[in-house]
């Protein structure tokens, strides 16, 4: 029996969310008294490094079939490793790529599945996982009864823990993987920016910013504190910002350590997507803005006055 972790990569590097997934796997394996096998598909930099986060073994799969990400091929290959290593708990990141294989893997393994998992499981009479529901408005504790359990873990839910161990790396030949029926034609990655779902700090702005030209200030503040940028729904609906930045009930749900909301009123649908943030700062010129009720720190003021000073303060602080 083992805990199997899918170690997702981006540009041949393990993503931060993958290191979280391995750390999560280690915690579960310790409770179960089993080992952690991390699975690395495609060409990733240094598989043995996953040992630093708790992997006991790393299984690598290199094959022409995996040169491109394909949910069908990756899920089939990953599932065959899970079977070969008698995986009883399977950990995948709740990212777009992770979710695109999670359901397929669950079917191939006959596993019980929970996505959007935000904490370690309670393991007792039942295997109980905590997952976000109602788009961040609540949490549910779900018992998984099948012998094999698959969990998709929301990024930023657990800390990355360093381990002293080293991982044994071995290659795995996945046989009988059918040729993918999908082909990637083009990939456009936003480079040089922190992906919003993984960001620890997020600077977000709403209709109070008046127009897209004023996002220079938002970007400046984000750069000064190493943040990703986000926005409210109307801002992306008006195409001031790309829809990938839209957070909330009908956008993405995030849980950074710090969320700074500027010129956002704090509508219930917006709060749904961000209320799991550890610390929330609200800057709004209206002292009655509902967002202040959900905030830890607040400034009542005009963003156009506050931001230049705030950017200055952030720059001089980080320059120290």
């Amino acid at each position: 029996m083992s805990v199997i972790v899918f170690a997702e990569t981006s540009d041949n590097q393990y993503k931060k969310s993958s290191l979280e997934a391995v750390s999560y796997g280690k915690e579960v394996a310790t409770k179960l008294g089993s080992k952690v096998v991390a699975v690395s598909i495609g060409n990733a930099g240094n598989p043995e490094s996953l040992g630093n986060y708790g992997a006991d073994e790393v299984v690598t799969l290199h094959d022409a079939a995996f040169a491109q990400f394909s949910p069908e091929a990756y899920a089939a290959a990953f599932a065959s490793v899970c079977k070969a290593h008698s995986g009883s708990v399977i950990i995948i990141s709740n990212t777009y790529s992770g979710k695109s294989i999670a359901g397929r893997v669950a079917v191939l393994l006959g596993a019980g599945m929970a996505s959007n998992v935000v904490d370690y499981p309670e393991i007792g009479d039942q295997f109980l996982v905590k997952r976000g529901v109602f788009s961040g408005k609540a949490f549910a504790y779900v018992g998984l009864n099948a012998p094999v359990k698959l969990l998709a873990i929301t990024p930023n839910s657990v800390e990355i823990k360093q381990h002293a161990g080293t991982a044994a790396v071995s290659a795995f030949a996945a046989d009988g993987i059918a040729a993918s029926k999908t082909t990637i034609k083009e990939t456009n990655r936003i480079t040089g920016k922190i992906p919003l779902t993984e960001a620890e700090i997020v600077v977000s702005a709403g209709r109070g910013m008046k127009g897209p030209e004023n996002w220079v200030m938002i970007e400046d503040l984000a750069n000064a504190i190493g943040a990703a940028t986000a926005c409210s729904k109307p801002v992306s609906d008006m195409h001031w910002r790309p829809h990938s930045e839209h957070v909330g009930q009908t956008g993405i749900t995030i849980k950074p350590n710090l969320y700074i909301a500027i010129g956002i009123s704090g509508a219930i649908q917006h709060l749904a997507g961000v209320s799991s943030s550890k610390v929330i700062v609200v800057i709004n010129k209206d002292p009655e803005a509902p967002f202040f009720k959900a905030a830890d720190y607040g400034i009542v003021g005009d963003a156009f006055d506050v931001l230049p000073k705030l950017i200055q303060a952030a720059k001089s602080a980080t320059a120290q």
Binding site: M113, A138, A140, G143, L144, N145, V282, V300, G301, L310
Partner: peptide, 27 residues
């Protein structure tokens, strides 16, 4: 394969600490 056991609402915030608009360095 699964059964919902119970639900929980997020912890309410402890209250907001206000900072003067003239002193963003304090934030």
């Amino acid at each position: 394969h699964s059964s919902y056991q119970r639900f929980e609402l997020p912890q309410p915030k402890q209250g907001v600490r206000m900072i003067s608009a003239d002193a963003p360095e304090e934030l």
